[in-house]
Amino acid sequence: MSNTADAIIIGGGIHGASLAFHLGQRGLKSLVLEKKTLAAGATGRSSGLVRMHYDLEPESRLAWKSFEYFRHWKDIIGGDSGFTRTGFIQLVSENYEEALRGNVAMHQRIGIPSLLIDPEDVRRLAPFFRTDDFNVAAYEPESGYADPNAVAASLMDAAKRFGARLVQDCAVTGIQLASGKVSGVSTSQGDFSAPIIVNAAGAWAQSIAAMAGVDLSVDTWRHDVAFVRQPKSIPANYPTVIDNIHSMYFRSETGGLTLIGLEDKNPIGESPDGFTDRAQPGFVERAIERICERIPSMENGDLHSDQGGYDGISPDQRAILGQIGPEGFYAQCGFSGTGFKIAPAVGLCMSELIVDGAAKTVDISPFDPHRFERGDLLKAEHAYEDIWH
């Protein structure tokens, strides 16, 4: 195996695979170095939501471009993404109704199929939902969820067709520099050389950046999920939901299950190598209590399983994309729990930045890694409350 490549990508999650694919389309051969196995980190623990509803326009634009991939996965990438169209509903309290209206208007301006609906509309879509605690909701009829492991695997397979290589069980232990430029990496499997190194290491991104002498503004965030067996009164598929009223998101899952994630009391700053086979204590009880608030008949369900995971989180809970530190060193991390659905477009835009000097498909300059030094944190025009607190 050759130890030289056009680019080294550290991290074998969906973002590493997406970048390897898009760089391959531009004629660059990548080495993807993964300390465990493909999708072993945040990707494999992702809830897989595919929706375009963000309160920051560049994120919605990335999600909209990525949706083109999910909708035509077999033709663009090959293989299977597991995309399931359920429709998507965003619920907010009355304090954020105007923000919701403003964001739907922004989505519609972009071209996203998004509309405002009322509680009666929600009852028609999901008669078993409680609908007496909101006045308006956002609805994306084309959205749903996909299979994160299948997405990462098919992206990596597509990247390999362009000459990319995946090296698993390969922990990066150092980044080599020469005359202010990156030149390669040291790993548990020897040294590898490339003039471009991309930090797509997710929850491990801060420690990887430090190897290049970079103080990257990214920490770890823990995300737990529970899977509940639905009672027979609930259909197999129903709309995917982000319920800001209850700091929760949920969706149907194959096998008659509902996946539940919570957006509060998620620890920040823990080791990304922490125990993730089960959720943290108390999580399941809180998740079940909240899902029963929105779907009262879920009282007749029962717990199937639960698990944890870690992702990287930035100070403004937005992605970190761009060159930082020595020449040839790039960050593609800090997705703060929402990176799955935008990964295809991020890989495309990062490949444009690396090869052409700037992204043209979507302007990713707002996600510049240097914004934190400037105190220029990203804030939406119609912002919702901070989550993952």
Rank of each mutant, 00 (worst) to 15 (best):
G347A: 00
C333I: 01
T240L: 05
K74I: 01
K232P: 07
Q230V: 09
T4H: 12
P141W: 07
Q168M: 12
E98W: 04
S46R: 01
A137N: 11
G44N: 13
S114M: 09
H304E: 00
A279I: 09
G12F: 01
D306C: 14
D273K: 08
F129L: 15
L348H: 06
G79A: 10
T86R: 01
L56F: 11
D75E: 15
P231G: 05
N103P: 06
A383P: 12
G308F: 03
A178K: 05
K65R: 12
S81Y: 07
H72T: 03
S30Y: 11
M211H: 10
S66H: 08
R71N: 15
S305H: 11
F88I: 10
G213I: 09
A63W: 01
L378Q: 06
G174L: 04
G334K: 04
R165G: 02
G312S: 15
R371S: 06
E263L: 06
M1C: 02
D132W: 10
T258I: 12
Y384T: 02
A63G: 11
V182K: 07
A210N: 06
A153Q: 13
V122C: 15
S305T: 00
F83E: 00
K379N: 05
A205H: 11
I76Y: 07
A358M: 07
S188T: 15
M248I: 02
V182M: 06
L155G: 05
G301Q: 01
L28P: 05
R222D: 04
